[in-house]
Design a protein around this nucleic acid. Structure first.
Ligand SMILES: [Zn+2]
Ligand SMILES: [Zn+2]
Ligand SMILES: [Zn+2]
Ligand SMILES: [Zn+2]
Lengths: 146, 146
DNA sequence: TTCCACGTGAGACACAGTATCATGTAGGAC
DNA sequence: GTCCTACATGATACTGTGTCTCACGTGGAA
């Protein structure tokens, strides 16, 4: 379990690199959105990002297009908070889940920790063939428990 | 694992009973929406329900208000499909999760099957105190595998 | 039967995300 | 370096989903 985002300027370098690897153009706006995403601490809404981007002269549509792009590359994931609101989190690319702190909003990557066995049990018991799943965990991070 | 919905007319009886128990008024529109929800096979969108209800002269706002009500009573739950779309499913009131068939759309209630241990492991390892979680499972039901 | 707190429908509203289209530019070909 | 074009952008209009307001209606207790 590691912190999902860092906070340096131009921290979006690895996002930009991933765009490049996938054969997408490395444009100014995309670099900027990548930095904005990487600079975010914890989950953020589309509106947050649109507002940040607007101050740099980047349009609404481009922000959504960039989010889609990063999402398709597995670098950003859309999560649904307990209240039903949507948010996005920056994350690593492998299959994993998020533990989201309800106090500070930070998200942490979590590995399966036995979940796949649980899913196997469910499938075996019921004849349901599991092909995909989503797990979201909410609670308090170690720092916020103090 | 049991089927979540049945298909008879006025099948919304147990929904109506739950409203009564919780001290809400048993109005005509609410009874109708309860029936519409109970009659649904598998997940449905708000738009589906609004359309059904409109034919009976029931307004949009009332449908959303009824969904909220049923949701607060644990009789309907909002789920997020893999593609990102929203839907609702009728379900029993205890804590559980949904296995959703990507072919026929039916949803099945699933118990923890060891999930709480997995969550305990995650918390123990990382110092994160888990207070809530959401698990959605997608795949093919036994019938649709044939 | 009376009464009023709660529920309703109509329609305006707020917000997230998408589509369209004319303009701009990254980056490969040369 | 210079073209060139496919891809990206921003402005703007649009759709869909859910919320709010408010005048009117009604369930259900007294
Ligand atoms: Zn925290
Ligand atoms: Zn998993
Ligand atoms: Zn099925
Ligand atoms: Zn659970």
């Amino acid at each position: 379990m590691t912190r999902a985002a860092t906070t340096a300027t131009h921290a979006g370098g690895h996002l930009v690199a991933a765009l490049d690897r996938a054969g997408h153009r490395l444009t100014g706006p995309r670099r900027s959105v990548a930095d904005l995403v990487a600079a975010r601490d914890g989950h953020f809404t589309a509106a947050d990002l649109v507002e940040d981007a607007r101050r740099q002269g980047i349009g609404r549509a481009t922000v959504f297009r960039s989010i889609d792009l990063f999402t398709s590359l597995g670098l950003v994931e859309r999560v649904d908070l307990p209240g039903g609101e949507h948010a996005y989190v920056a994350c690593e690319t492998a299959h994993h889940h998020h533990a989201i702190c309800t106090s500070c909003g930070r998200s942490f990557d979590v590995d399966d920790a036995g979940l796949s066995e649980v899913l196997g049990t469910i499938g075996h018991r019921s004849g349901f063939r599991v092909t995909a799943h989503r797990l979201e965990i909410f609670g308090l991070c170690a720092a916020c428990q103090r």
